[in-house]
Design a protein around this nucleic acid. Sequence first.
DNA 1: CAGTGGTCTAGACCACACT
DNA 2: GTGTGGTCTAGACCACTGC
Lengths: 275, 275
Amino acid sequence: MAPAHPSQPDLSPVDHRAPADTLSVADAPAAALATPAFSPLYQQIKSLILRSLQAGEWKPGDMIPSEFELAARFRVSQGTVRKAIDELATDNLLVRRQGKGTFVATHAEQHIQYRFLRLLPDAGMPDAQGPAERRIIECRRLRGPAEVARQLDLRGGDSLVQIRRVLSFSGAPAILEDIWLPGVPFKGLSLETLSSDKGPMYALFEAQFGVRMVRAVEKLKAVAADADAAALLGVEVGHPLLSVERLAFTYNDVPMELRRGLYRTETRHYHNELS
Amino acid sequence: MAPAHPSQPDLSPVDHRAPADTLSVADAPAAALATPAFSPLYQQIKSLILRSLQAGEWKPGDMIPSEFELAARFRVSQGTVRKAIDELATDNLLVRRQGKGTFVATHAEQHIQYRFLRLLPDAGMPDAQGPAERRIIECRRLRGPAEVARQLDLRGGDSLVQIRRVLSFSGAPAILEDIWLPGVPFKGLSLETLSSDKGPMYALFEAQFGVRMVRAVEKLKAVAADADAAALLGVEVGHPLLSVERLAFTYNDVPMELRRGLYRTETRHYHNELS
DNA sequence: CAGTGGTCTAGACCACACT
DNA sequence: GTGTGGTCTAGACCACTGC
């Protein structure tokens, strides 16, 4: 067990027992007192694992090396690796399965159909609304509006993909979504790609473009339906709709998707837990 | 250090090294195979600490005994107590402060004014909207509607307190709230109590009634303002409002408050983070 | 300085899944 | 049985706070 790790440079992190000035900030100017810049070993291990995830060393769904293997690779104890993995698991980047191993989280093959969708039926079981029917209204490339570009950390003239679609439950339209994606990472995304796909959109992004959405922030408002939305969702103009603006991030907090959804909430609600 | 713990019965939990049949399920019938009913030591410690919190052995804001003291009391190692406290801290029941100690979380003297309020101004700093002005519209006791009673785990005829209030920012009304509380734990709550108070309502509940809200679930919808709401919030009838229905729980998932808020979201939004 | 939480180690054993 | 993650211990040392 624990053979040499092929083509793996010595990643042994700093020795936490060494004097403070040999820590990872060794080269910082002595006057830099604003940043304590001390980072525990397990945090450094966490960063190293994160780097491997970004680099694609292990793909979504893969099993990563065992805690002991990683401990040997990084020259630390198993407990330290464990703490690093613990944090990555609570961040939903890794999934532990006792007896089997630790796996890279994925939007595909998860029991929940849509990991980031918080819309539930008012009555009945959480999944009583069945699978959503999806209709793509359009998918085009354009030079995006400045506000969208800004949120995606792009320059004003950069290319974007815009998608508009409607989700229905049991034949009744429920959600109208506009989605903006940066053009470069999503080169080749087309109406055909989207239409022929079956699973969640974020699973498609993983499989086809290697883009994994890790976290997101949402801004919710109540708005009145305009003519467009009213027609597509089958409500009167002025009907109250829940507007959900979502900015989704990949690794390292890089924004990769802006999405604006309009939800009908007559028989459904947006569910949230506070603590 | 670690003197005898006065008036403390021997709380030593089950020995995890003992054969399985001496675990806490020792008395379960042999046929009961549906429940694995194995609980790690640190979970048992967590329950014991939780029990002390409920019993009021340590009040909100208090410092609890050090990890070593608790380890001695419960006859386990410090690391096991640590893991129990870790979970209680991530549940926001305890707060760790390095060098000082571990404290019972409180809704008072927290930097954020309202811990469960997710409404932020669209632009500007998170706290740019300043403190809210609060106006109590009414506070009365009644036999509550069946639906409210059901959600609060009460019988239909039990007494309730109902509060209606409006929150404004910079003089502009923003939130209309209806709050229902069970009458028994909140005996003595009156308009005077509420009006003379300055801090967050949940801080008042802690200080005056010993009720600490621990977590909550919310259901969000977009609705049209009715005549009442329109008048109190200064909008037209039919104006879209964000409806936020919150059920808040004390320890042990006992529901203690039902709250229905109507938020104006023209210049503010409900903020949420997904992961 | 002493007391507290925070990190790290090394080793033991348990629970679970596969073969 | 073997290999994985999960729990528990005992002891060492570090970092922060306040006397």
